[in-house]
């Protein structure tokens, strides 16, 4: 553990400030609590909000998992995991079930989270109304007055033009019938998982906002009676583990553009293959590894 910095990098006063914001966030689910985000030793936009929330949440007994795009081995996930290994000396894991704190960018793990698990999201733009109204002074008023008509108009215009709601990720949700919330840029496939047993914390460093969902909080994806929410995914099984219920990455295999589909949640896919599940191309992959 690095002696130059405090446990989990942040000083205690900063952690207290973040902890207070987290508690208010839990008390007002879906409301974005302003917090005095600190300048972290990694760039804004690369998870500084999630990192600050994790740093204020971790205990020395925690086991941490960090994923980006569902994978533990993507470079930014590696970088953030290393940061906490160095500054908090905590145990890390790639296995979802062994983790107590999971920091994520863009995905919710496939495996259901338990009551003792905490999911920390990295959030780039916490304001779900931002792309409809760029001014913070205006969007704050809209939340205060529960004026979400603009959002419904936008979604309805999508339907009029495309026959579908043209939002595939960061699909807005309404929390406990009150606040419209940005779920972070997770694919809409993940939205239904947000009603879960674990605690969900959202950190936006550059935009200086923290918000939260206690376990079992009602989270409803916005939709219309005649155009119900559709958590779609690629219409294919995983080519490695055969799963038909997971979110898939499409991988281009050759110059002709041949594609294969694999689970985006790499740990989930691995555990399924270890349990004997196979997909259309798992034999081929085995051959490759042995060669």
């Amino acid at each position: 553990m690095s002696q130059d910095y405090n446990f989990a990098y942040l000083d205690e006063q900063t952690k207290r400030m973040i902890r207070r914001a987290i508690l208010k966030g839990l008390a007002i689910p879906g409301y974005q609590v302003p917090f005095a985000s600190r300048e972290m030793p990694m760039p804004y936009g690369w998870g500084t909000g999630g990192v600050q929330v994790s740093a204020a949440t971790l205990t020395p007994d925690d086991t941490m998992k960090v994923i980006d795009q569902g994978a533990d081995d993507t470079t930014n996930a590696v970088s953030i995991r290393k940061f906490f290994q160095k500054t908090a000396d905590i145990d890390v894991t790639e296995e979802t079930s062994k983790a107590t704190v999971i920091q994520t960018r863009h995905r919710i793990p496939e495996e259901d989270l338990r009551e003792d698990q905490i999911l920390v999201y990295q959030v780039p733009i916490p304001e779900p109304l931002r792309f409809l109204e760029p001014r913070e002074t205006e969007t704050r008023k809209m939340h205060a007055l529960e004026e979400y008509g603009l959002m419904h108009v936008k979604l309805y215009e999508d339907i009029a033009r495309h026959g579908n709601i043209a939002t595939a990720y960061a699909y807005p949700v309404k929390v406990e019938g009150r606040y419209v919330m940005d779920p972070s840029p997770i694919p809409k496939f993940d939205n239904p998982k947000m009603e879960m047993a674990g605690i969900q914390l959202f950190g936006a460093g550059r935009e200086q906002r923290i918000y939260a969902l206690p376990p079992y909080t009602q989270v409803v994806s916005l939709d219309f009676d005649d155009h119900p929410f559709d958590p779609s995914k690629a219409d294919a099984p995983c080519d490695l583990c055969g799963a038909t219920h997971t979110y898939l990455d499409e991988v281009i295999m050759d110059d002709a553009g041949t594609a294969m589909f694999v689970c985006s949640d790499t740990d989930y896919c691995r555990s399924r293959r270890e349990a004997g599940h196979t997909g259309a191309q798992s034999a081929a992959q085995l051959h490759e590894v042995n060669a």
């Binding site: 405090n6 446990f7 989990a8 205690e12 952690k15 207290r16 902890r19 987290i22 508690l23 839990l26 008390a27 204020a56 949440t57 971790l58 205990t59 020395p60 007994d61 009551e115 605690i199 939260a212 206690p214 376990p215």
Partner: peptide
Amino acid sequence: DPPRQASFAFRAAMMAMAR
């Protein structure tokens, strides 16, 4: 040992507020 003790205490406080 403020960093350690506060972290455990906060976890309890957060779990209480979340549940």
